[in-house]
C-alpha cells in the first residue's frame, strides 16, 4: 500500500525561497537547498518548488536551483511556475526534477501536456489546477495566472480533459480555502476523485493536524500539500505523520 504523501511547497523567487501572504510582502526565508535538506530530515515525502519569478531572465535560475537541490536532497522533486515549453521541461528534468507542474500553460496550450507526456512519460507531467467556487452557480471553476484570471472551465471537466491528454497527477488548490487555515476543500476532492484515476494532491487550507486527517479519511487523495504551516513551524512533519498514523492513515514514518 502506498503511503499518503505530505508535501511542503517552497515559493522560489530569483533563486531564493520567499514567503509572503497572498503573494505580497515577500520575505526572503532562505536558500532552497538548505530548506529542502531540512524538510528531507523532517521526513517530507516530496517537495514542490513553485517558481514565482516574474521575469524570464530570472527564470533560468530555477534550473540552477534544481541542480543544486538535487545534489543534496534525495527525494522526489516537482517544479512548477511559468513552464511553457517542452524544452523548459527537459531542462528541469535534466537538472534533477522528477516532475514538472503545468498550470496556466496547460490552459493556454493543452497540447503541451500531451507533448510532455509523450516525451518524458505521464508520471513526469503534473497539471496544477487553481479552483474557486462560483458563488452564483456553486460550480468549481478554473483560474490561471496565480489565481488572477478566470476561465470558463469547470474544474472536474477540466481535470478529466487533462488526464485524457496525458497528465499523470493533479495538484489541485482550492483558492477559497487557501490561506484560511480552515481545512482542505474536501467536497471538491471527493468530486475529482470520483471522476479521475490519477493521483490527486490536495492543496490550500491546511491549518491544523486534524485538517490532514480529514482530507485523507474523507477524500481519495494521495497527498496533501502545505506551505505556511510548515515554513513557520506551526506544525512539524513528524507530528503530522504521527497523528495520521495513529488515525489509521498509511504514512511513511
Amino acid at each position: 500500500m502506498l503511503a499518503k504523501r505530505i508535501i511542503p511547497c517552497l515559493d522560489v523567487d530569483a533563486g531564493r525561497v520567499k514567503k509572503g501572504v497572498n503573494f505580497v510582502n515577500l520575505k526572503d526565508v532562505g536558500d532552497p537547498a538548505e530548506i529542502a535538506a531540512n524538510y528531507q530530515q523532517q521526513g517530507a515525502d516530496e517537495l514542490v518548488f513553485l517558481d514565482i519569478t516574474a521575469t524570464n531572465e530570472q527564470r533560468r535560475t530555477m534550473v540552477e536551483v534544481v541542480e543544486k537541490v538535487s545534489r543534496q536532497v534525495f527525494m522526489p522533486l516537482t517544479v512548477g511556475g511559468g513552464i511553457t515549453s517542452v524544452a523548459q521541461i527537459q531542462a528541469l528534468l535534466k537538472a534533477g526534477a522528477d516532475k514538472v507542474s503545468l498550470n496556466s500553460a496547460a490552459v493556454a496550450d493543452p497540447q503541451l501536456i500531451t507533448a510532455g507526456a509523450k516525451k518524458f512519460g505521464n508520471q513526469c507531467i503534473v497539471v496544477a489546477i487553481d479552483v474557486k467556487i462560483n458563488p452564483q452557480t456553486g460550480q468549481p471553476m478554473v483560474y490561471t495566472h496565480g489565481g488572477q484570471q478566470a476561465t470558463n472551465l469547470e474544474a472536474v471537466a477540466w481535470a478529466k480533459k487533462v488526464v485524457a491528454l496525458g497528465a499523470g497527477e493533479l495538484l489541485v488548490t482550492s483558492m477559497d480555502q487557501d490561506g484560511t487555515k480552515n481545512g482542505f476543500a474536501i467536497e471538491l476532492y471527493q468530486k475529482l476523485a470520483a471522476a479521475i484515476d490519477v493521483p490527486i494532491i490536495a492543496s490550500g487550507g491546511a491549518g491544523k493536524i486534524q485538517d490532514f486527517i480529514d482530507v485523507f479519511q474523507q477524500a481519495e487523495v494521495d497527498g496533501a500539500l502545505a506551505a505556511s504551516v510548515f515554513h513557520y513551524g506551526e506544525l512539524t512533519i513528524p507530528e503530522v505523520k504521527q497523528r495520521l498514523k495513529a488515525a489509521g492513515v498509511s504514512v511513511r514514518c
Binding site: 500500500m1 502506498l2 503511503a3 504523501r5 515525502d45 505521464n122 508520471q123 499523470g168 497527477e169 484515476d197 490519477v198 493521483p199 494521495d222 511513511r252
Partner: peptide, 10 residues
C-alpha cells in the same frame, strides 16, 4: 491501485 505505482511503499 493506480498504474503506474508512484510513491513510497513499505
Amino acid at each position: 491501485f493506480k498504474v503506474p505505482q508512484m510513491g513510497w511503499n513499505q
